[in-house]
């Protein structure tokens, strides 16, 4: 298990980080060096002021009210998934530094309970979102429209979320944030080590697999449709040009 963890949760992270950040930089470079369309592609209603355009951009990108209107079910799953993913991402910041104020407010046990609840909710919502999208791609026009890229991404996401949930629901009471923080801080400070607590319990398998999927997911991210995470800002801005 120690070798598995060194590959997935130490060296794999370094590789994924290089590919992810390099890939995103390459993607942004490609976009920014391609000349803009000479035709204004905006549509109406169009805000007249810069501030109005910015506000509309934020609304269209983060809320997508038009999409909500035309397909509410899809929108609810998509919105919930993205919010949960953001929550999970913020929650993972505990791996670097304990949140300020919250532990003083809740006490150490209270903090762990809070994290358990919020992490569980986010984990369940993300799982529901991924399962919904997989199900959606199995029939009718959605199936016909899907290409292997779509399934690959959902498969990787399913792996990330399932193993994350596994750690949360099975080992949540056994291994706490401090242990993971010790491991993660050692990795990002380039003095990698794997804490004894991780090796002592089977959580190592979950963590290793969670990280395996996460690394693969992040490495493919810049080369997939997931760059809508950055591209949607400029494409939505074009809407009011």
């Amino acid at each position: 298990m120690e070798t598995y963890l060194w590959i997935t949760s130490v060296w794999g992270i370094y590789l994924a980080a290089i590919v992810f950040f390099g890939g995103m930089a390459w993607r942004i470079y490609e976009w920014s060096t391609t000349p803009k369309s000479p035709v204004r592609l905006g549509m109406f209603p169009k805000p007249k002021t810069k501030l109005g355009r910015f506000a509309k951009l934020m609304k269209d990108t983060f809320i997508a009210p038009q999409s909500a209107k035309i397909e509410p079910t899809m929108w609810i799953f998509a919105f919930a998934f993205h919010v949960a993913a953001l929550g999970a991402f913020v929650g993972h910041a505990r791996l670097i530094h304990e949140f300020p104020f919250l532990p003083e407010l809740l006490g150490e046990a209270g903090m762990n309970t809070f994290a358990a609840w919020s992490g569980s909710i986010a984990g369940v919502i993300m799982l529901a979102g991924v399962l919904y999208w997989i199900a959606r791609r199995t029939y009718g026009p959605f199936k016909n429209l899907s290409v292997p890229e779509d399934y690959l991404l959902l498969f990787l996401l399913l792996g990330v979320v399932t193993m994350g949930d596994h750690m949360r629901f099975v080992y949540g009471d056994i291994v706490h944030a401090a242990t993971y923080r010790e491991w993660f801080l050692s990795v990002i400070t380039f003095r990698p080590e794997i804490p004894h607590e991780l090796l002592a319990s089977n959580v190592g398998i979950s963590l290793g697999t969670h990280m395996l999927f996460t690394n693969l997911f992040l490495m493919y991210f810049p080369f997939s449709k997931l760059i809508h995470s950055i591209g949607s800002f400029s494409s939505n801005l074009v809407r009011s040009e």
């Binding site: 976009w31 391609t34 592609l41 999409s67 998509a78 760059i227 809508h228 400029s234 494409s235």
Partner: peptide, 21 residues
Amino acid sequence: MNRQLKQYIDICARCAICKDA
């Protein structure tokens, strides 16, 4: 090719929300 076209091609998630539009 131009920037908008490239982004449209790169970012479509094939969510098919457009089908009912």
